[in-house]
Design a protein around this nucleic acid. Structure first.
Length: 108
DNA sequence: AAAGTGACGCATT
DNA sequence: TAATGCGCCACTT
């Protein structure tokens, strides 16, 4: 139940975030919590994504609850993350913050 | 086996 | 408004 399953679930969910949309760690955590006995915390989601290296998982579309980008995104830092988002048409309200109000991913 | 760590989030100070 | 504290739980050492 633990081990790879947790990561796998996170990845599967993140893979469903469409280009141009943004999801938050808390959002992912809440979704995974359904049906799970254990409380999935946003912290672990971030952790899982940090560990991820699979290019199929659009981890750059996941930010914290304020829309702030991850300070240590992979090798190139948050700059890389920002570049990817911009190329997908994501709007920023600040150097390090995306506009969550209109681009937040909502899957019912 | 125990303690430390972490792409967070919320309450409190 | 900013800073600090604490819970959360899987993983590493």
């Amino acid at each position: 139940m633990t081990r790879g399953d947790f990561f796998k679930n996170v990845y599967r969910l993140v893979r469903r975030v469409p280009s141009g949309k943004i999801a938050t760690y808390g959002q992912i955590a809440l979704r995974l919590r359904s049906g799970q006995a254990r409380k999935i915390t946003p912290r672990m989601v971030g952790w899982a994504l940090h560990a991820n290296r699979d290019p199929n998982v659009p981890c750059h579309r996941v930010v914290d609850r304020n829309g702030r980008l991850a300070p240590n995104f992979a090798f190139n830092g948050w700059r890389e993350q920002k570049n990817r988002l911009i190329s997908e048409g994501v709007l920023f309200t600040d150097e390090m913050h995306v506009d969550l109000s209109k681009q937040l991913w909502e899957k019912k």
